[in-house]
Design a binder for these strands. Structure first.
Lengths: 253, 253
DNA sequence: TAGTGGTCTAGACCACATA
DNA sequence: ATGTGGTCTAGACCACTAC
């Protein structure tokens, strides 16, 4: 078989990218469209290869890349599954704050207190981060996370109002699990990637009070933008972390 | 050809790992032994495949993993090269502090001032981080990095005395390039991976003075352990970053 | 036993770099 | 023109999981 033209190239538009990458994009679209839900298996490599008219090796390379980006999870003997934040070891994969006493496999925060959850109009900077227009509706949530009774994280987060209709404080309080798991289960929004900007700051009086520290205690400021498929930003989150008993852990490759 | 037993399994020790991983380990040893120097090309895939008695596809998979770990760099049409910190875009790959005004492709710090460089006996915590014994000789370096005339980073670093004989303040001052590039060129020590612990702290009087801030300015504390091949720790570095005009940038996959 | 992903091979051709 | 890595294929067998 000759190769690149392939059964899926558009008639006129030149495609100039390897077959497996074209396939990968097609699968990405299916994932985004909800063809398979988080946690569910996708068809086997040979099924997909047949469906797209490529060899199993090519299909494998496409899926390998999706697995490398944490979009799917391969399990030998069982199949390939759509990744989900609901799985145990994925629960807090974006949370890099860990207790100083080792325990990298630690659990997430024990107590979560919702301070507020309301719909409002996006300020300029929130709108910019979410690629909305200033004044568009967003949902703002403020909460405190505590470890062993000690309030440790204060975070504010903003979500596009359209995608998160019906998100309320009650809904958040009932939910026992990671917030990102709630987002994918209840709102069909899967966060696949994020960027963070870290700074050292001093809290204002209200922030200090919520974290039970004084205003001269330096805190780690973590501003995160989380993205769903195709690099679409779906959450802006501003966290203040106490780093007296915990630290932010990072691996440099 | 039958497969796993392979031409390289030891006679009695069971090996139970895929051929390509065994090959990978062998190549790793050659890299560590200095068979090919940083920046130099390693033999072509087909040469290596012949040398180890495996197919080119298996060789490719072994090299793919080494490339994924930044130990080698593939360049189409040219060959595969031993990774080096000396290359332009690798100069500061462990430095995540970037100016607030975008410019992710920014240069490294413009001015570096060596405050001190001396040999001394390792304290308990330094020894632990470097897997030495308390009292073993280490080299300590303290320096300040400035961006646009503004002192922004104060860092102390400790290196095993044995591996870094002859490292002096003069040597560091003459060197125009990343410190890790000096380490590999002059001392044959290649840092391939690192972990960092971040905290928000207040500086003491001396630290504040060196960074031209007052002692109530919160700073980002970054404690890094850098590893060479086979997860051997070779550097402990404690940095204090000013985050008024810069921030620590992190990507979460 | 059957189905899945994981490994390994052998060979063809493409894209890129260099001489 | 030659040599490199990059892509694609086809087919074999292994390891794990489930029934």
């Amino acid at each position: 078989m000759s190769n690149v033209p392939s059964p899926l190239a558009e008639p006129s538009a030149p495609s100039f990218s390897p077959l497996y990458q074209q396939i990968k994009v097609l699968i990405l679209r299916l994932l985004q469209a909800g063809e398979w839900k988080p946690g569910e298996p996708i068809p086997s490599e040979s099924d997909l290869a047949a469906r797209f008219g490529v060899s199993q090796g090519t299909m494998r390379k496409a899926i390998d890349e999706l697995a490398a980006e944490n979009l799917v999870v391969r399990r030998q003997g069982k199949g390939t599954f759509v990744a989900t934040h609901a799985e145990h070891h994925m629960q807090y994969r974006f949370l890099k704050l860990v207790p100083d006493d080792g325990d990298v496999t630690a659990e997430g925060p024990a107590v979560r207190t919702i301070i507020e959850c309301r719909r409002l109009r996006a300020s300029a900077d929130v709108a910019r981060a979410l690629t909305l227009r200033t004044g568009d509706t967003v949902v703002q949530v403020r909460r405190v996370l505590a470890y062993g009774g000690v309030p440790t994280i204060l975070e504010d987060l903003w979500l596009p109002g359209n995608a998160f209709k019906g998100l309320t404080a009650e809904r958040l309080e009932e939910w026992h699990g990671a917030m990102y798991a709630l987002f994918e289960t209840e709102f069909g929004v899967r966060m696949v990637r994020a960027t963070e900007r870290l700074r050292a700051v001093l809290p204002d009086a209200q922030q200090a009070s919520l974290l039970a520290v004084d205003t001269s205690t330096p805190l780690l400021s973590v501003e995160r933008v989380a993205f769903t498929y195709h690099d679409t930003p779906m959450e802006l989150r501003r966290g203040l972390y106490r780093t007296d008993t915990h630290h932010y852990h990072n691996e440099l490759g």
